[in-house]
């Protein structure tokens, strides 16, 4: 198995967000790559796409979705998937990712990343759908570990086992969000190293780092503020275990200037040496 499933190491990137469009178009700042939220450039032919086309001419683009609903028992949305592939081909996205989650059922869409019961039935169900998506993409699909706030009474395995077996069964890759590992560890009371120790690091195609909100009795994955040191340390830990993959900073709320976001992303270098 080649590292990162053969996908390139793009270095350090940041999530493409609208407050930074003007700066990026005018200043062409130095940054390894941009990750887009796929759905922001779907169901549109207008201004978002006009801007993305310009940015994609100058920077590598990776697509990260929030709406595939890979774990839902509703049928896969073929119209959505076809549009996803068209967008991938249009901007030359290096890979396509989404979350291990479901967003709705019985056609009622919550637009949230809802947690999966971690059962044999769910694993088989998700694996079937990952294979179908990969057939359509003609490439490995990359799945992110989500932040979760509940656990199911019927779960029979931890999330790290679920993801590891999913990788093994389908050949998919991992988008390892170390902030989500931290948030879930706080919410569910496990040690984040236990999670990271169990994952197949050669499947990690990409990292996410981000800020979160610590409410004391629980943490929420808000992508707000700078990345805290314990999350950077989880990145270092995973990196030392062999997951030398592209790194992406997500900052989605109270977004500061591009330079400030970029500076926080580049802090990753301190933890990789």
């Amino acid at each position: 198995m080649s590292a990162r499933l053969g996908f390139p190491d793009l270095g350090i990137g940041i999530g493409l967000r609208t407050p930074h469009y003007r700066h990026i178009l005018d200043e062409r700042p130095k940054i390894g790559w941009f990750e887009i939220l796929s759905e922001n450039y779907m169901q549109t032919e207008g201004r978002p796409m006009m801007i993305l086309d310009q940015i994609a001419e100058r920077y590598p683009i990776v697509m990260h979705g929030v709406s595939m609903s890979i774990g839902s028992t509703d049928p896969l949305d073929t119209e959505y998937l076809r549009e996803l592939v068209r967008l991938r081909d249009r901007v030359g996205a290096r890979w396509v990712s989404d979350h291990l989650c479901w967003t709705g059922v019985h056609t009622h869409n919550s637009h949230d990343l809802l947690p999966m019961p971690l059962t044999e039935e769910a694993l088989a169900h998700v694996a079937d759908r990952v294979r179908a998506v990969q057939d359509l993409l003609g490439a490995p699909f990359i799945l992110e570990n989500p932040s979760t706030y509940v656990e199911f009474a019927g779960s029979t395995m931890p999330e790290w086992e679920f993801l590891s077996r999913l990788c093994e069964n389908t050949g998919c890759g991992l988008l390892l969000d170390v902030n989500n590992v931290y948030v879930s560890s706080r919410n569910h009371g496990f040690h984040p190293h236990v999670y990271l120790d169990a994952l197949p690091m050669d499947r990690v195609v990409q990292f996410h780092v981000a800020g979160h909100t610590d409410n004391g009795d629980h943490c929420v994955d808000t992508h707000i503020g700078p990345v805290i040191k314990p999350v950077w340390q989880l990145l270092r830990y995973a990196w030392k275990k062999g997951a030398n993959a592209s790194i992406l900073l997500e900052w989605d709320a109270e977004i500061p200037s591009f330079d400030e976001v970029r500076a926080d992303a580049l802090r990753a270098r301190r933890y990789l040496s």
């Binding site: 469009y21 979350h99 409410n215 997500e250 989605d252 709320a253």
Partner: peptide, 27 residues
């Protein structure tokens, strides 16, 4: 009102504080 429209898809509501608006504070 902005030069470019704001994000629509995201992993979390932009309200920022997650469940800050709900009324529980379990101690």
């Amino acid at each position: 009102s902005e030069e470019f429209e704001t994000e629509r898809a995201s992993a979390t509501p932009k309200g920022g504080e997650g469940c800050d608006g709900c009324d529980h504070r379990a101690t």
